[in-house]
Design a protein around this nucleic acid. Sequence first.
DNA 1: GCCAACGTTGGC
DNA 2: GCCAACGTTGGC
Length: 154
Amino acid sequence: MAHWLFKTEPDVFSVTDLAQRPSQRECWDGVRNYQARNYLRDRVQIDDDVFIYHSSCSTIGIAGLARVSQVGVVDPTQFDPESHYFDPKSMPDNPRWITVEVEWKETFPDILSLSDIKQMPNLDELPLLKKGHRLSIMPVGANEYKTLLTAARR
DNA sequence: GCCAACGTTGGC
DNA sequence: GCCAACGTTGGC
């Protein structure tokens, strides 16, 4: 089973929003980067763990945990002309943007902040900390996952 | 708001 | 395929 980190702007959609969905599930829509899409389409599997990371906000960092509840989901916003994520070049018979659905598992007592993460040892492999890395969907290694989860639950 | 570090677009 | 111009991300 693999582990992931998904970024979201909490002003738009937060881990609290996910927990408050009726089924505590939500389609992870709006990803419009091909490398991130390829992860979502080809690599992310059901029951994988997902750190929910809050970006572009007052407290930046890992806010919660989810699990992948469905894969191969066609992002509906690509066909919605009213949506910010509308993609006129994507054809319904060959959708360009495939994503997954996630289910809330846990909201951490405190956000594990980016500044804290940067001070933790043994996280050199975390893409999040690599210079110039902007992907909103990234893999997290098993060891890094364990380290981060332990720190987040404290 | 700034700006580095990307990714995308489109003319050639 | 090249690459300049432009757009986006995201921490600060």
